[in-house]
Design a protein around this nucleic acid. Sequence first.
DNA 1: TAGAGTAGTGCCCTGATATA
DNA 2: TATATCAGGGCACTACTCTA
Length: 227
Amino acid sequence: RSEWERERAAMCRWLNKLPKPVAVFAANDARGRQVLDACLAADLPVPYQVAVLGVNNDELICETSQPPLSSVAVDVEHAGYAAAELLDHLMRGTLREPRLITYQPAGVVRRASTERLPVTDRLVIRALEYIRINAGLNIRVTDVAGHLGVTRRWIEKRFAAELDRSVLDEIKRVRFETVRGLVSQTGLAFTEIAHRCGFTSANHLGIIFKAHFGVTMSAYREQHARS
DNA sequence: TAGAGTAGTGCCCTGATATA
DNA sequence: TATATCAGGGCACTACTCTA
């Protein structure tokens, strides 16, 4: 077996021993992805029993992980300037004594791996996973129930007992998060965003976007382009 | 073994939402 | 804006489990 397979087996044993729910802070995104891999192998649902946070915000790793990995974004631009300044002092011979340079991280980029959902019911966890993956396909509550092989009435009651919100609320929440991300982080046409997120038209999406966020999609995009 | 409690389901009504 | 569709919740019923 490969070295990683042996290490993953050890990581699975370690993860299984930890009290749940638990959060794991990985030294970097690659390591965070390995933790996610071990959780999958150990049948530990992320983020419901194990939350995982990486460092570096490597978008390729974070966005292609399953679920997407939350990560601490490092302020590399600031670090580069600080290093260049230090190098300049060294080259000029103006550095009197060694000094430690520290700088703040740019922030935490939140993704699904750290979403705060204290859920223990396996059926509800499966429903949440299905919704997270398929919310953009205009799914309905009956689709979620059908996927799980239970009735709508049953999944609704289990949701209410476990999460204090309805199945539909969760579908809407995930859809709006997707819409918000596409509006603020891409230059996609609103028609395309509406299509991708399961809305029949950009007009209709615009109406409910404003009702939900209090601003039009154009204004929201403009605000986030400036910030 | 009978009764109590619980889980699961279907039916139906009301209100909300999507669409033309 | 009217209409169709869907979600949510109450209620009743059945099946199952637990306990005395």
